[in-house]
């Protein structure tokens, strides 16, 4: 084998420098065009006429009401969806029953249905023209063109996030640890709190953050059910569109910056937590 003299030794999974750098460069270029540049453009547009002007646009009562409504809707729909998502993932991964595949498909439904269609669906069901909607309005609890409808539509759209995040993780972890807890005398509830929940907490956190980001940003479905009543049923994304259509571009982009900032804060929070608990994370993942 003396005729084969390796000129340069290189691990099997490594590419030449040229390939490495051009791939990395390409990736960064795409990220810049699609992600960083638009984000900077939003902030830049918001601050075009200075900080004072931008902040003043947020002082507008309609803008304030929109921010408040978005936070309220997220505060209701995200915890509920987290609870439902955990319950669905738990039922799907820890038990065997008929129709399981069907339910998994059903969980994905909100991803495949256009948000506008979802919104119309709620209008048809709960609108004043339907029997149920008429009764609700008569009893002083309007759903459509009111906050409950916005919450419902948001929950429908964001339902898959937590469950989708949890199901693969829980499938991979299997049922053995839960079974072990049961044989040691723990109740089902205790098993869930002390074994299942700690094992899925990172996936859960990630799912909740995604769910939250989407809940605050949802436009289509909310646009249909809310009726876009200024100062009452207008969420931040709807408000952004209104401002924009009224040529109040600083107000529109300032509101958009706030929405983007909320998303960035959640992402930063997640990274900080991952960094803080890196040891535990590694310990949970390496064990097989």
């Amino acid at each position: 084998m003396t005729d084969i003299t390796p000129t340069r030794w290189r691990p099997a999974t490594t590419e030449p420098a040229l390939v490495k750098w051009s791939l990395t460069g390409l990736c960064l270029a795409v990220l810049t065009v699609l992600l960083f540049a638009p984000l900077i453009a939003v902030f830049d547009e918001a601050l075009r006429r200075g900080w004072a002007f931008a902040l003043a646009s947020l002082g507008d009562p309609d803008a304030q009401s929109a921010i408040r409504l978005t936070l309220v809707v997220a505060a209701i729909s995200v915890p509920l969806n987290a609870a439902f998502g955990i319950a669905a993932a738990w039922a799907i991964t820890k038990f065997d029953w008929r129709g399981k595949a069907w339910v998994i498909t059903l969980i994905d439904l909100p991803f495949s249905v256009s948000p506008v269609v979802a919104g119309l669906l709620f209008v048809l069901m709960f609108g004043a023209n339907s029997a149920l909607g008429g009764w609700l309005v008569a009893n002083g609890f309007p759903v459509v063109f009111a906050v409950p409808g916005i919450v419902l539509a948001t929950m429908f759209i964001t339902f898959p996030f937590v469950a989708r995040e949890l199901i693969p993780v829980m499938l991979e972890q299997g049922r053995a640890e839960e079974e072990a807890a049961l044989t040691l005398g723990a109740s089902g509830w205790r098993t869930f709190l002390t074994v299942t929940l700690p094992n899925i907490r990172w996936a859960l956190l990630y799912g909740v953050l995604l769910c939250n980001a989407r809940a605050m940003g949802e436009f289509g479905a909310v646009a249909v059910v809310s009726g876009k009543i200024r100062g009452q049923t207008t969420t931040m994304p709807l408000m952004i569109e209104m401002f924009y259509n009224e040529y109040l571009s600083v107000a529109a982009f300032t509101m958009a910056s706030v929405l983007a900032l909320l998303a960035l804060v959640t992402l930063t929070l997640k990274s900080a937590l991952e960094w803080r608990y890196a040891d535990q994370l590694a310990a949970t993942h390496r064990h097989h």
Binding site: A176, E177, E179, A180, G185, A186, S187, R190, P198, T284
Partner: peptide, 24 residues
């Protein structure tokens, strides 16, 4: 019960694993 792949609680120390049944 000792499980095939032992099913130790991966997020707990050995001490907490062994104490689990007593605490439950």
């Amino acid at each position: 019960f000792v499980f095939q792949s032992y099913a130790l609680f991966r997020h707990m120390t050995v001490f907490d694993n062994i104490a689990y049944g007593l605490r439950a």
